[in-house]
């Protein structure tokens, strides 16, 4: 049975989608069948990491939520985006993108959708595509689909930056996850400065939140330079960012 992994952050700009995409890609390079779903309906961005242009997508998550298609019809095989780099032995990776069209984004926000359908969709994807992992890239903050993703996930990974606002927001999200009895909650600290303090930082975060820290990822100019135009772990497999991704993937 595949594992449902929700990746979430309390605030935007934490690098959540970037980490989600790279973890999914790395898992695929290890021979796993991986699905990654972009539930950030309001500001989708995962597709860019996999080099998928909006014109090349027939169905999206929006279509599924509005009953226009089945969920597996919205799954887009993006294995090719990593295959050139990692070779033929790689697993499979499917992207279920949200619509990038402004009209459709506005429509679904205004009309709403059945959140329960999202849960069914997750389960169907795992079953139909025989996934080992389904990574759910959530919308930042706390809303219904976020809570749903957290509630049904096997693992909830909370991404935070090391600043006061994120610490506070993470504490709230963590407490909600506990109330929802999420089996495993892990933390990833991204965009940290001063490597000499990473150990102390990790210890303090663990001490404060009482949860495992999977990785402390340094603020990297190289990652920023690539931006959302590609999968960094595929481009630079020896980079410290990639090593952190590997560490996260291994923990999942």
């Amino acid at each position: 049975m595949g594992r449902l992994i929700a990746i979430h952050s309390f605030r935007g700009g934490t690098g959540k989608s970037n980490i989600s995409g790279n973890v999914a890609a790395w898992l695929a390079t290890q021979g796993h069948r991986v699905g990654i779903i972009d539930t950030d309906i309001q500001s989708p961005g995962l597709h860019a990491l996999f080099g998928v242009s909006p014109g090349g997508i027939q169905h999206t998550l929006n279509d599924y939520l509005l009953g226009r298609c089945r969920i597996e019809e919205a799954a887009f095989d993006v294995t090719g985006s990593i295959q050139q780099k990692v070779g033929a032995k790689s697993g499979q990776i499917y992207l279920i993108p949200s619509s990038m069209k402004t009209g459709e984004i506005t429509h679904i926000i205004q009309s709403g959708y059945d959140v329960g359908r999202l849960n069914i969709g997750f389960q169907q994807l795992i079953q139909k595509l025989e996934l080992d992992y389904l990574l759910v890239d959530t919308h930042p903050g706390v809303n219904e689909e976020t809570l749903l993703a957290a509630a049904i996930s096997d693992v909830l990974v909370l991404i935070l930056r090391p600043d006061r606002q994120d610490y506070q927001g993470t504490a709230i999200m963590l407490e909600l996850a506990r109330k929802l009895h999420v089996p495993h909650v892990h933390l990833v600290i991204n965009k940290a400065v001063s490597r000499s303090d990473f150990k102390v930082l990790e210890e303090r975060v663990v001490s404060t939140f009482k949860e495992r820290v999977l990785a402390v990822i340094p603020l990297s100019d190289d990652v920023a330079a690539l931006g959302s135009s590609g999968l960094f772990c595929v481009e630079q497999p020896q980079h410290e960012f990639t090593l952190a991704i590997q560490k996260i993937a291994a923990a999942l």
Partner: peptide, 18 residues
């Protein structure tokens, strides 16, 4: 650096929001 090491959480605020 100081801010990132100052892992302070306002428990009352957290509790209220939760």
């Amino acid at each position: 650096q100081l801010e990132q090491l100052r892992v302070d959480v306002n428990d009352k605020e957290t509790e209220a929001e939760v």
